[in-house]
Design a protein around this nucleic acid. Structure first.
Lengths: 214, 214
DNA sequence: CTTCCGTTTGGCACTGAGTGCCATTACGCT
DNA sequence: AGCGTAATGGCACTCAGTGCCAAACGGAAG
């Protein structure tokens, strides 16, 4: 279901007909249409036609129309895992998490407009907001597994899961601000979001904190 | 779209044909079918038939099949708002939030099995997990608005939004544990989830990391 | 009781996403 | 050229969701 054909490892393919396109290419085409025409106003027929393939084939590359808005997320998740694995265990947990989230969201300058357009859709179109939750779950799980490994507890237990949620929430809150302000710096916002968490959920009783309104 | 007919204020209805059922009743019927037969295996025709109404009418009471799994959430949200409004402003923010979340999830013992069945679906069925995100957004917004009011900042700004996310995440993490353990106490788990946050994001280690330059 | 008015109902037909089936096409290899 | 393999895409189907509209209903006035 997740991995259909046309996505076998490049080296593993020897026999048979060549795939007519790629998941990344379809994502590009779909994103273009979604951005210009609107998500609901774009049919899967439109996308297939724009990509020069049959509608039936489209659904072999992507499990759903919503899924097209996402690129190769699994690939990026691998990067996140690797980054976490390479962090020194002496680094305090919050700092490790902050660092991982920031690195995960570091993109080359020339990709930023593209990334912004995608995130604009993902965080704006109701159908995509809803669908994205399923992708986020995998992201949260990576965080949870890191916490679990680090503290030698079950990844499915309360603490890793709650922390996974908190990190996701901080990220999305930062993204919303980023999308609202063309000039804003995504990575700064991400760090600020984590500072919000540390400031709010401080260990002792909560002392009044200074505000940073926007 | 959100409020269709059949949901006008009870006192406000004088004229015209009587509604054949209610949103709550349909939710009950649908939940029953979803639980026994499975969500994907239940068609909207099935639900309409079980409720003794036409399929067309079903969609006048509920915007979507997924929405049926939710009860009158807007009503409960009002309760959450009220509770937050009545909290003493001297109460530290974390404690206020914890208290609100706990009160929001307090149910009479005899409703617990029903509530559990519903949450089991909402947190297990992919289509419902996805759809629920849209409902959660309203919940987060209530939290964000409270924080914003309390600190005299914009509800749409980073801090209230991030806190809203964190509270939602803590709640959902607690719910997952609750569903996994028949014996567990939901309110205890909720409080524990908030303790996780306070323990993890303690003020001390909020040191700025290396700066980036993207 | 009848008429009128406003509301809900539900049938019908339609769009569009997603899927199973399967013949066809294209590629690499011998 | 022929073979095996894998991708393609057409066709038909299910099902969610919607616009349209005539019929059913319930209260109030005549």
């Amino acid at each position: 279901m997740a991995l259909q054909n046309a996505l076998r490892e490049p080296e593993a393919r020897r026999l048979g007909r060549k795939p007519a396109t790629s998941r990344a290419e379809l994502s590009r085409v779909a994103l273009e249409l979604f951005s210009t025409r609107g998500f609901d106003e774009t049919t899967t027929d439109d996308i297939a036609e724009a990509a020069g393939i049959g509608r039936r084939t489209l659904f072999r590359y992507s499990a759903s129309k919503s899924d097209l808005a996402w690129g190769d997320f699994d690939l990026e998740l691998e990067g996140l895992k690797k980054h976490l694995d390479n962090l020194p265990s002496a680094l305090p947990l919050v700092d490790a998490l902050t660092s991982a989230v920031i690195e995960f969201n570091r993109f080359p300058d020339d990709e930023l407009p593209y990334h912004r357009a995608r995130m604009q859709l993902l965080l704006t179109v109701p159908a995509l907001i809803a669908h994205s939750t399923l992708r986020y779950a995998a992201w949260r799980q990576v965080i949870a597994e890191y916490v679990a490994r680090r503290e030698n507890i079950e990844a499915a237990s309360l603490r890793p899961q709650a922390i996974g949620w908190a990190c996701l929430g901080a990220s999305l809150a930062a993204y919303e601000q980023w999308l609202a302000d063309e000039q804003a710096n995504l990575l700064d916002l991400l760090e600020a979001a984590f500072v919000v968490l540390t400031g709010t959920f401080s260990n002792g009783s909560a002392q009044p904190l200074d505000k940073e309104s926007s």
